[in-house]
Computed example of a mutant assay.
Amino acid sequence: MTTLTPEITPSLVARINPVAKLLAALVISVTLMLSVDLVSASVALALTLVLVSWSGLSARQFWLRTAPVWIAAPFAAITTVLYGEDSGAVLWDGGIVTITEGSATLGLAIMLRVLAIGLPGVVLMATTDPTDLADGLAQVLRLPARFVLGGLAGMRMIGLFVDDWRALAQARRARGVADKALLRRFGSQAFALLVLAVRRGSKLATAMEAKGFGASRRRSWARESRFGMPETVLVLIGVLIAAAAVTAAVLAGTWSLVLA
Rank of each mutant, 00 (worst) to 15 (best):
A24T: 12
L22I: 15
L23H: 08
V30P: 05
V19T: 13
T31G: 03
A44D: 04
V52E: 02
V19G: 08
V50E: 11
W54R: 15
S55D: 06
A67S: 14
I28R: 05
L26Y: 03
W70P: 10
S35N: 05
L57P: 06
T31V: 14
A25Q: 03
A44F: 05
A41L: 09
L47C: 07
P74I: 10
L57Y: 02
I28V: 14
A25P: 07
A72M: 15
V50S: 10
W63C: 09
A67N: 08
L57S: 02
G56A: 09
V36M: 12
T31A: 14
T48M: 14
A46C: 07
S35R: 00
W70A: 07
S58A: 12
L23Y: 06
S55Y: 05
L64W: 09
L38M: 12
T66V: 12
P74A: 12
L23V: 15
S42F: 04
S55K: 07
S42L: 09
D37Y: 01
S29H: 08
D37L: 02
L45Y: 03
P74E: 11
I71L: 15
V69R: 03
M33T: 13
V36P: 02
S58C: 10
V52D: 02
M33W: 11
P74W: 11
A44Y: 05
V27D: 01
D37W: 01
L23C: 11
A44T: 04
S29I: 04
T66M: 00
I28Q: 02
L57D: 01
L45T: 00
L34E: 05
V19W: 11
S35M: 06
A72P: 10
L64P: 05
I71C: 09
L45F: 09
W63F: 12
S35Y: 01
W54F: 15
A72I: 15
A72H: 12
W54V: 14
L49R: 05
I28A: 00
A67G: 11
A24K: 12
T66F: 04
A46S: 10
V50T: 13
S55T: 09
L49Q: 07
L47G: 02
V36G: 06
Q61T: 14
V50P: 11
T31W: 00
I28E: 00
L45S: 01
K21P: 08
D37K: 00
S29W: 09
R65K: 13
A41V: 02
M33H: 08
S35G: 06
V43M: 01
L38E: 03
V50R: 12
I28W: 03
L38C: 04
S40Y: 04
T66R: 01
A24F: 09
A20H: 02
S29M: 14
Q61N: 12
W63S: 15
V19P: 07
I28G: 03
A46R: 01
G56K: 08
